[in-house]
């Protein structure tokens, strides 16, 4: 399991992201993107209290968009 983990797409919160509601530093946690019945495990910044997951802009308009496009033609 730990070996698999290394291949996950990972975004580090770099101690610069806070959850505004909980006033907590966001931490890296296991998450999953899902689209059209496909799931992709990733590690994303998450609020340890309320569980809010953050998707940065670069990721959304980059990798996420390109994967979406590939799946859309499946």
């Amino acid at each position: 399991m730990s070996d698999d983990k290394k291949t996950y797409y990972s975004i580090d919160p770099e101690d610069k992201l806070y959850c505004s509601k909980c006033n907590e530093l966001m931490v890296k946690a296991d998450c999953a993107f899902a689209y059209l019945d496909n799931e992709f495990p990733v590690e994303m910044p998450v609020c340890p209290v309320c569980g809010l997951v953050y998707v940065p802009e670069d990721l959304a308009i980059g990798k996420v968009l390109s994967v979406e496009k590939v799946l859309e033609d499946k």
Partner: peptide, 15 residues
């Protein structure tokens, strides 16, 4: 000052 979007859903996994 900015906005973006994506169609994929994101959620916490496990635990």
């Amino acid at each position: 000052v900015g906005a973006y979007s994506h169609r994929m859903t994101i959620s916490k996994r496990g635990r």
